[in-house]
């Protein structure tokens, strides 16, 4: 539902980053990790990026999304790792169950709510003036 505002947040932070750390060429792909607990449409997020990036130096870049599974920590037995999933017919979605797969106690979420840029693919051949390097 809030794909545009989050895409704008990602875009602003990346534009700030690029001002401080210029890259040698045009950014073609922006790699983003998206926690699977977030209720966000990947299609809408990519579309929002495409539209919002127009007119900036990131115009034409593509958002590449990688879904990050939930990682949890159990304070009862010390387990740390993935959780189990509920995938019933009729739910049309695999749902992470926030319960310790080892002892069944409630868990704390360590990962799975993130939305962050984790990498860029830069096309160096797009530079018309290599001396700028």
């Amino acid at each position: 539902m809030h794909e545009y505002s989050l895409a704008q947040g990602l875009l602003n932070s990346l534009l700030d980053y690029l001002r401080a750390h210029p890259v040698p060429g045009r950014v073609k792909k922006v790699h983003v990790k998206k926690g699977e607990l977030l209720i966000l449409s990947e299609w809408a997020l990519k579309e929002a990026w495409r539209i919002l990036a127009e007119g900036t130096e990131l115009s034409g870049s593509e958002l590449v999304l990688e879904s990050v599974p939930v990682r949890a920590r159990c304070d009862s037995c010390g387990y740390e790792g993935n959780v189990r999933y509920l995938a019933e017919e009729g739910w049309h979605m695999s749902v992470p169950v926030l319960s310790c797969p080892r002892c069944g106690a409630p868990v704390r979420i360590m990962e799975g709510r993130d939305l962050a840029i984790v990498g860029l693919s830069v096309d160096e051949s797009s530079l018309s003036k290599p001396e700028r390097l």
Partner: peptide, 15 residues
Amino acid sequence: MHDITGSFGDVMQKQ
């Protein structure tokens, strides 16, 4: 193509 990795401002982390 040149790849740069790192972390650039987690928008949910701020929340």
